[in-house]
Nucleic acid binder design. Sequence first.
DNA 1: CCTTAAGGTTAGGCATAACTAACTTAAATT
DNA 2: AATTTAAGTTAGTTATGCCTAACCTTAAGG
Lengths: 199, 199
Amino acid sequence: MVTDNIEKLSTKEKIIKVGAEIIVKEGLRKFTAKNIADKLGITDAAIFKHFKSMDDIILEIIQRYVSRCSQSAIEAVERGKTIKEKLELLLKAHIDVLEETRGAVPVLCFELSRSEDAKFKTILNNFVENYTQEISKIIKDGQVEGSIKKELIPEDVAMFFIGSIQAKVFAYVISGREGKIIEDPDQFIEMIFYGIMNR
Amino acid sequence: MVTDNIEKLSTKEKIIKVGAEIIVKEGLRKFTAKNIADKLGITDAAIFKHFKSMDDIILEIIQRYVSRCSQSAIEAVERGKTIKEKLELLLKAHIDVLEETRGAVPVLCFELSRSEDAKFKTILNNFVENYTQEISKIIKDGQVEGSIKKELIPEDVAMFFIGSIQAKVFAYVISGREGKIIEDPDQFIEMIFYGIMNR
DNA sequence: CCTTAAGGTTAGGCATAACTAACTTAAATT
DNA sequence: AATTTAAGTTAGTTATGCCTAACCTTAAGG
């Protein structure tokens, strides 16, 4: 779905791709018809031949990226045999979508979940809620099984997961780096699982 | 500096307080003269009796909140006897400033470090850089000492700290919750230090 | 070959935001 | 008491952003 060669894509696809990129790299304030159009070498009016409104573009981005994120997480969980493997697969799936979408999902969540617009707010808050519920369930099972620390609140751990990934996007974005957002997923997961210190 | 009773403050202080609150709760797009003025029961034009421009308000917010954040971190590190204590004090100091400023610093970092405006970008990127350097130094000492895992990259760990806190703000902001951002700082620090899983 | 539709263009309307100018008021200073 | 200053007001300018209307252009289909 996300192609490296932007040249080949239809204008509509280009708008979505460039739009998502602007949100990540420049912020929502720079997500304007003119900014997108300039980057594609067309006029702002042409944007509206493809989308009814600017909000429609955002909705499309959210729907594509966010729904894929939930979907692949659920699949990952089904495939995992042990609790640890389930969490590992879930995190890896999450990281994969993250890399493919160049960090758009966390940025959108952060920037739009506080939006005045109930439309975005609802979709994104539901997404985050379902996602945390999904993780919480596994955490609870892990606590019963004894592999996960009993004193932790499952919902907190779920948010810790999401947040840790978001933090990586933050680091990536402010560094202005190119390339992968999470360089070493295994070490990243290790840090979340067992912390930074030796006992 | 941050007073609970907003009534007593001068208009200039109110503008800063309300402005920071808007950035956290509603996002940068809603950070407008009219929005601030409405909340203070004055007109938008009155804002410019106190600040030369809207950017000036943001600069003032950044300077106050961000500089305090670095300052109290450095002090905390000086007071700590062991590596573990240094990190603990640093995280606690960070959390204190975070609570006082209602999450403004991480949100500003996230929203403005990608800003078009070099003014904000430079200040915030320098802040993040100094801060990670400060933490990295301690992490390196801890690795020499043997208390911190040798395989971790110090800069990554530093970003993991900042990110974990940012994650809490994220959770706080999208939940729309009131009250403290980090309910149980000790458990939070424990999670960062030793992870979520039993060995 | 003519028609149609997709996807562009220019021009412009409308709303909103930043900021300014000129005026008012009321408190503080001289 | 007179003057000055701080801090507000209204009204307006300029710029920008979303979006529409009316007009081109080109390629495909009948």
